[in-house]
Each structure stands twice: as structure tokens, then as C-alpha cells.
């Protein structure tokens, strides 16, 4: 089955339901991680990195906007409302991606953890790459087209984070210790990134994306040589310590983030800004 236009979805309510679920996962993942990245602005380890990181965050926000637009085209709501208005219980992002960058607030005494930033972004970006490669063949053609566009930018993102990951993990002393801690922390919740949630089977059945297990194995295959290079063990199972975001389980970090990112929007959701 191939769906080429949003209008065709009327005849396939179950397909549509699975598609909407998947699009929310994709949109919310990129949206919240880009938000966390934007909090880093001006605080990166050096100015060159500030610029590169910001460029990645813009791309990622752009990807979220494309997914929200696909949802708008299906008639789920306006892209801006979907991004700014939904409470955390309706969000489908992985819990790992909503976690704060570290102690402090982005304007007050931020003691953000660069090791955590590198590991979270690198592992997520690799998972995103695996997902995008699969989505290029999605049965929903507008999504497959978006995946092709996103894929072009991912190469650079992946290279950027891989370089940081290898450099810092292979450094001696404090840096390696910090990186090892960050890896352990990220793995505790990384299962939440790799899962497709309760409706994952339907997504696979309809040819929207390949199975969770297949995608997970591809991620492991891609990471294996990197872990060998930095001399760390790659686990075969990943945790979901703080819940499954795909099913609407979230932490207070997400509530706080939504309050901030919608602060101006909420002053008047009906007006043009």
C-alpha cells in the first residue's frame, strides 16, 4: 500500500492513526532536543562550537517543523499550535531528550554538562539516521520525501557528534571519566529513543517504518566499531528508567520546558506573532 496524498487517508482511519502517532514521535523528538540545544547557545566550550551547535539545532528545529507541517496537512492542527500548545501528557518524545542539560537555568548559573550533551546528541543522531533511512521507503509518500530532505543534513550532524565523542572519550583523565558517566546515564533511558511505543506494530504492518528490533540492531551495528575505537563496552539492552515517552509518560523537566518554550505564544495563542 502507498499513500501519496493526505486526502487519501480518509479511507484508511487505522492507517492514519498509526501515521499520526509516528509523526508525533518524530516531531516531538526533534522539537524538544532542539529546544534543549538552544538553551546551550552562548554557553558551549568555545565560540566555534557555539556556531556549529547552533547550526545543528536550527536544522533539527527545521526537521520538527516539517513533521508538524505533515500533521497540519493531515488536519490534526496548526503546526505552531501542535508544537507550543500540547501538554506533556500528549507529547510523544523520548524521555531522554527532555532531560535538562544539567544543573541551573539557561539564564542563571547554568552548569551544563558537555559530556552529556555530546553523548545524548550523538546516540540520538545515530538513531535518527537509522530511522530516516527506513522512512525513505515509508508507505506514506509525503513522509518519505521529508526523510530524503532531512537525510542530507544528517551526515554533517552525525560526523560532528562522532568527532566530539571519540575525541573526548579517548582523552585521558577527567574527560574520559566524564564521558563514561555520560554514556552510562544515557543508556539508562536510551530504550525510550529506540522504541516505537504501543502502536509500533501497526506502523510496521502498514509499511510506515521498519520494526523496532530491526532499527535497534542497525543502531548497534553502526555503534560497534565506534565503541571498539574508544574501548568501551556496548550493552545489548537499553533502559527506560524514567518511563516510555511514546506512551505519554514524561518527567517534570518536560513540563518546565513547555512552559518556557510557549511563554510568549501563550500570551495570545490566537494572534500572529
Amino acid at each position: 500500500m502507498k499513500i501519496t496524498k493526505p486526502e487519501e487517508l480518509h479511507q484508511h482511519p487505522e492507517y492514519k492513526e498509526a501515521l499520526v502517532e509516528l509523526l508525533f514521535q518524530l516531531a516531538d523528538d526533534d522539537f524538544i532536543l532542539s529546544y534543549r540545544g538552544s538553551e546551550w547557545l552562548g554557553l558551549a566550550p568555545h565560540i566555534e562550537e557555539d556556531i556549529a551547535f547552533s547550526s545543528i539545532n536550527q536544522d533539527t528545529m527545521g526537521h520538527a517543523a516539517m513533521y508538524y507541517q505533515l500533521l497540519e496537512d493531515i488536519g490534526i492542527g496548526k503546526a505552531d499550535d501542535l508544537a507550543h500548545q500540547r501538554p506533556s501528557s500528549e507529547r510523544r518524545n523520548a524521555v531522554l531528550l527532555e532531560e535538562v542539560n544539567g544543573p541551573g537555568h539557561y539564564l542563571h548559573e547554568p552548569r551544563y554538562d558537555w559530556a552529556f550533551a555530546v553523548v545524548r546528541h550523538y546516540f540520538y543522531t545515530q538513531a535518527k539516521k537509522v530511522r530516516i533511512d527506513s522512512l525513505k521507503h515509508s508507505s506514506y509518500e509525503p513522509l518519505a520525501q521529508v526523510a530524503v530532505k532531512i537525510n542530507m543534513e544528517l551526515y554533517y550532524h552525525l560526523m560532528h557528534w562522532r568527532t566530539w565523542f571519540i575525541q573526548l572519550t579517548n582523552a585521558q583523565g577527567e574527560a574520559r571519566e566524564r564521558m563514561k558517566n555520560a554514556v552510562a546515564k544515557v543508556f539508562e533511558d536510551f530504550g525510550g529513543v529506540l522504541t516505537l511505543g504501543a502502536k509500533g506494530d501497526r506502523m510496521v504492518e502498514f509499511g510506515l517504518i521498519e520494526s523496532e528490533e530491526t532499527l535497534k540492531q542497525r543502531w548497534v551495528q553502526a555503534m560497534k566499531p565506534i565503541f571498539e575505537e574508544v574501548n568501551l563496552d556496548l550493552p545489548s539492552e537499553f533502559g527506560m528508567k524514567r518511563g516510555n515517552g511514546r506512551n505519554g509518560e514524561h518527567t517534570a523537566d518536560l513540563d518546565e520546558a513547555i512552559m518556557t518554550l510557549s511563554e510568549v505564544y501563550r500570551l495570545d495563542p490566537l494572534t500572529a506573532w
Binding site: 547557545l41 505552531d80 507550543h84 518556557t260 518554550l261 505564544y265 500570551l267 506573532w273
Partner: peptide, 9 residues
Amino acid sequence: EWVPKAPSL
């Protein structure tokens, strides 16, 4: 200060 808070995508 306003980057994360900007009111639309």
C-alpha cells in the same frame, strides 16, 4: 533569552 521562547516555529 528569547531564543527558546520565540512564539512560533
